[in-house]
Amino acid sequence: MSAAAAIDVDNLAKSFRVRRRVGLSTLFRREPATEVAAVRGISFSIRPGERVAFIGPNGAGKSTTLKMLTGILTPSAGHAEVAGFVPWLERRKLARRIGILFGQRSQLWYHLPVKDSLELIARIYGLDRVHAAARLDRLASTLAIADLLERPVAQLSLGQRLRCEIAAALMHAPPILLLDEPTIGLDVSAKASLRDHLIQLSTEEGTTILLTSHDTGDIERICERALVIDKGLLLLDQPLATLRAQHLRHRLVTLMTEEESPSLDLPGVAVASREPHRTSFAVDLGLIQVERVVATALERFSVRDLAIENPPLDDVIRDIYRGAEARVT
């Protein structure tokens, strides 16, 4: 365990006993339980103030790990400390030191105005009225929710609600913030806005962030380091710059042009798909920069619109996983 770490995880593992239950014949006799390993001995350490992405495909073990780190799931083996507490032994003490956002679950009371929910949360954490009001003002200003405070949560858009959920997670000014799919379901501008707010808060308050997401944009924009997990094993732990250089080697540039079928004879650029007036190019970042491709396209064609996309995270994970398998064999 490193003394200065915000989160320290050592060989953490979790297995679940699963009993098959089918048909009437099993109603009166117990089927033997089978052990299913969700997390298989992972270790990592996160420094205070660091922003780390915890990524992997569905069923990789991300949420199980997050639950163990918040203290709501006891591991089968291994050890962890979060803010100096062993989560599953000191859940209530730890709760004052961490903020949690489950993107698909609300911590707010749906029928209440946002302000009432946040004040109730302040009472739960024992903030006095003056301190709570000051904190609410600060979060309202940083997260741009001042004009939402009097509205019932049920009347907010998803993007507005998620900004309020972040305020709820941060009311007690926790030094560590755990985010599970924070931008799921948001449109492009709401995602960008939420990411900016998270970065601002983390920078100003030195908040450590550990986030899970399927959106490479979240990871690239917010985080400086990535942990990649699959099938319960930690496949990769490296700075995002290295991950990007090694695995996010392609971008997809889509051009909507006056020309029916434009072509770009540049090294590292290949046509990925083509429709009349709409062409997608796969750009190999190891050979050429996206900026150069875009500049060339703007110079040569009448571009009505363009989009630059990352490859899907699942492709990246598959790439990493293939690499890990190759190393093993």
């Binding site: 709760a95 949690i100 489950f102």
Partner: peptide, 13 residues
């Protein structure tokens, strides 16, 4: 059944 209790269990109350 919805799992919403998880968020409540992470509070100091």
């Amino acid at each position: 059944n919805s799992g919403a209790i998880e968020a409540a269990l992470t509070r100091p109350f």
